[in-house]
């Protein structure tokens, strides 16, 4: 089990020029680690649609690389997206931060807390490059490998959950985020 902030610090050190799409709790942490035009806080969101949004971006921008930081609750809302990712090769790097909680609603368990193996699910969906990390040292050691090379990639990271959290706020309005992102992508 690792601290979510520490896990995101590792991502920040290895993301290179990839677009980073954050969802839910990660939206509240990520701007303190990276706040470039290639950082897209997907909030307000449709819960569970982060991987699909990332896939669309990755297909539209071949070679760019798109990282999606998704929670376990979000993942459970759209398990089919694992199948869709497997079916459309693109440089999409899906990081599943599993804290076993709906953290932004205060910390209730999900239906999958403690008994879902997201790495096995990703493999069964057909994703070829799948990783699993229990501790920060292993994640730090392999992050460069995880975040490079051909996608799709799925990595399951077990992180500590927090109770009493509230829904984070995005660093800036959505329209401004979109304008920054598209300008950074050369549009």
């Amino acid at each position: 089990m690792m601290d979510a902030g520490a896990a995101l610090e590792v991502l920040a050190a290895h993301r290179g020029d990839h677009v980073v799409v954050t969802t839910m709790s990660a939206v509240g942490i990520w701007p303190s680690l990276s706040d470039t035009p290639l950082d897209f806080a997907y909030l307000p969101s449709s819960m569970g649609q982060g991987p699909a949004l990332g896939l669309g971006l990755a297909l539209a921008q071949p070679g760019r690389g798109v990282v999606v930081v998704n929670g376990d609750g979000c993942m459970l809302m759209n398990l089919g997206s694992l199948v869709t990712l497997a079916n459309h090769p693109a440089d999409l790097y899906l990081l599943i931060f599993d804290n076993g909680l709906y953290e932004v609603t205060g910390g209730q368990p999900t239906a999958g807390t403690g008994h879902v193996d997201f790495a096995a699910m990703a493999r069964a969906a057909g994703i070829g490059r799948v990783y699993s990390f229990d501790g920060i040292d292993d994640w730090r050691a392999q992050a460069a490998e995880v975040l490079s090379g051909p996608g799709p990639v799925a990595a399951w990271l077990r992180v500590q959950g927090k109770h009493g959290q509230t829904t984070p706020k995005p660093p800036r309005p959505m329209a401004e985020q979109i304008e920054r992102l598209q300008r950074a992508l050369g549009m």
């Binding site: 699909a52 297909l59 539209a60 921008q61 759209n78």
Partner: peptide
């Protein structure tokens, strides 16, 4: 719903 999100990403990406 996933189709809408993929289309959204495609649009954002040009």
């Amino acid at each position: 719903g996933e189709a809408v999100a993929v289309a959204g990403g495609l649009y954002l990406g040009g």
